[in-house]
């Protein structure tokens, strides 16, 4: 028996969300009295043994040239085979883009019940019950998995990373991937910026900024903080900002540690995309803006006066002249 955690990586580096998934898997393994083991598909740079600090005993790795691109069909077949090979009773994913594509397929292959969007460790007092986010973050459901093998996809930024002393044993796993039936013809990454879905800090702005020419201060604040930039739907629809920056019900749903909303009123559809943020700061000149009800900190004031002051204060804090 074991808990198997799929370790997602990009550009040779293990993703932060996988550190969370590893910590989650290690804590679950401890609770059910078994070992936690990781699985890496494809080549990575750096020593995987260091992943032992997250509480796993082994890292299984399949290195094969065909695994350079993520095809959910190919990956799911390998992960299901690996789960059987290591006698896994639970398979853990991060509920990120790759996890969302792969975990459902693994669930079918293993005929293992899936809970995606998990936000806390399973409750084992009466069955195997996982709490997950539903209604776009407006509620939680407690879902019981009724099958011998379980699949859980953990929401990003929902479970804290724990580290301890330790090294994992890296083991090559001899599995042969099937041929991919899709072909990636081009990849466009927005370089030099923090990807919104992975960002710890997000600075976002809305119609209150009046026009795309006023985004300079938003970008300046984001750069100072090492934050990603985001926007509300009307702003993306008006092409003031690119669509990939749109957060909300129909855009991207994010869960950063800090979300700063500038000149966004906080319509319910916008809140649905950001209400999993740990801390929400709202800057709006309208004291009646609904966003203040969902905020932790707020300033009622004109963004064009307030934001430059914040920038000055952050510079001072960081010792930047």
């Amino acid at each position: 028996m074991s808990v198997l955690i799929y370790i997602d990586h990009a550009d040779g580096q293990v993703k932060k969300v996988s550190h969370e998934a590893l910590s989650y898997g290690a804590a679950l393994a401890k609770a059910i009295g078994t070992t936690a083991e990781g699985l890496v598909l494809g080549k990575t740079s750096g020593d995987l043994a260091v992943l032992g600090i997250y509480g796993i005993t082994k890292v299984h790795q399949v290195t094969h040239a065909n695994l350079d691109q993520v095809d959910a069909q190919v990956f799911a077949a390998l992960i299901a085979d690996a789960a059987i090979a290591v006698n896994a009773s639970v398979v853990i994913f991060s509920n990120n883009i790759n996890g969302k594509a792969i975990a459902p397929r693994v669930s079918v292959r293993l005929k293992a019940g899936l809970v995606s969007g998990a936000v806390s460790l399973p409750d084992l007092t009466n069955g195997f019950v996982v709490r997950k986010s539903v209604f776009s973050g407006k509620a939680f459901a407690r879902v019981e998995i009724n099958t011998p093998i379980k699949v859980i996809a953990v929401n990003p930024n929902a479970y804290p990373v724990h580290t301890l002393e330790g090294q994992a044993e890296v083991v090559a796993l001899d599995l042969q991937p099937r041929d991919s039936r899709i072909k990636v013809t081009a990849t466009n990454k927005i370089s030099g910026k923090v990807p919104l879905s992975e960002a710890d800090l997000v600075v976002s702005a809305g119609r209150g900024l009046k026009g795309p020419e006023n985004w300079g201060m938003v970008e300046e604040l984001a750069e100072l903080l090492g934050a990603a930039t985001a926007c509300s739907r009307p702003v993306a629809d008006a092409h003031w900002r690119p669509h990939h920056e749109h957060v909300g019900q129909t855009g991207l749903a994010i869960a950063p540690n800090l979300y700063i909303a500038i000149g966004i009123s906080g319509a319910i559809q916008h809140l649905a995309g950001v209400n999993r943020s740990k801390v929400i700061v709202v800057i709006n000149k309208d004291p009646e803006a609904p966003f203040f009800k969902a905020a932790d900190y707020g300033i009622v004031g004109d963004a064009f006066e307030v934001v430059p002051k914040i920038i000055t204060a952050v510079r001072k804090l960081k010792g930047i002249a």
Binding site: G113, L114, K138, A141, A294, Y297, I299
Partner: peptide, 19 residues
């Protein structure tokens, strides 16, 4: 393969701290 046991609403926010 799964069944929903119950739902719950998130705890109410403590309220905004205005500066």
């Amino acid at each position: 393969l799964t069944s929903i046991k119950s739902f719950e609403l998130p705890p109410a926010k403590a309220g905004v701290k205005l500066v």
